[in-house]
Simulated scan of single mutants.
Amino acid sequence: MQPQSVMPWSVRCVVFDLDGLMIDSEPLFEESARRLLARRGVALQRTVLCAMMGTPARQALQVFRDGHGLTETVEELRIESSQLFHEILGEERVKLLPGVVELLERLEKKGIPRAIATSSSRRYLERVLTPYGLLEHFAFSLTCDDVTHGKPHPEIYKKAAARFDQSAAEMVVLEDSPNGLRAAKAAGARCVIVPHALVPLDDLEGADAIVSNLLAPELLQLLQV
């Protein structure tokens, strides 16, 4: 996958999404959704799953409910899906995706500040990253608990730029979903996509670059790390 430009960017800060970019959590969400639907004799629609990606839980569950024609309330689905997710997760670590640690080290050596902006909760963020000791490598993190509007609304990325005291135009966002891409671009940031397998490339129009992984040579060149 090639970026639209191979000229290095002026990068003052980098913001990481969490699910599907840093950690391999999407299969866990998919399996919990599949089990919830199986109890009702309903097949999982992968297009619905894709539309949910990158959005806060309640917003995602509304899409899930409508897309599968369910009659339960969003709150009822939230409780049931949360129970299923944590049963699947158990006591295991959620796996880091390739290149996360190495890219953080490269950015750190260059003195480029880093942050996390996720649609997940702070409790969940700490649950999945604390075992790896990664939170200390970020200047700050923003979660769904810190915003009124979730992705694809740009609020979380506008807040990130403000926290860095930088122009969004000099902030690079690393994302894996169309909703995250829309949020980043609406905030005025550059956005690099490492697409999830569920995401059709046609849904990623407007990305400043699309790369195969976090250590792709073209990404390292753009970030000058």
Rank of each mutant, 00 (worst) to 15 (best):
M1Y: 10
Q2A: 13
P8Y: 13
C13P: 10
M22N: 07
F29M: 03
S32N: 07
R39F: 02
R39C: 08
R39D: 11
R40T: 03
V42C: 06
V42P: 05
L44M: 10
A51W: 08
A57Y: 00
A57E: 01
A57M: 03
F64W: 05
H68M: 14
G69H: 11
F85K: 00
F85L: 02
H86N: 14
G90F: 06
E91M: 06
L96K: 10
L96D: 08
P98A: 15
V100F: 08
E102A: 15
L103D: 10
R106I: 01
L107P: 01
E108H: 13
I112C: 11
I112H: 07
P113G: 05
S119W: 10
L125V: 04
E126I: 06
V128S: 07
P131Q: 08
L134Y: 10
L135H: 12
S141D: 05
L142A: 13
T143V: 13
D145A: 14
H149E: 13
P152F: 02
P154N: 09
A161R: 02
F164V: 00
L174S: 01
S177M: 05
P178Q: 03
G180E: 08
A184Y: 14
A184K: 09
A184C: 11
A187W: 10
R190D: 09
V192H: 03
V192P: 05
H196Q: 12
A197I: 13
V199T: 07
L201D: 11
L201H: 14
L201R: 15
L201N: 06
D203N: 11
E205T: 11
A207Y: 03
A209M: 04
N213M: 07
L214C: 06
L215W: 09
L219C: 02
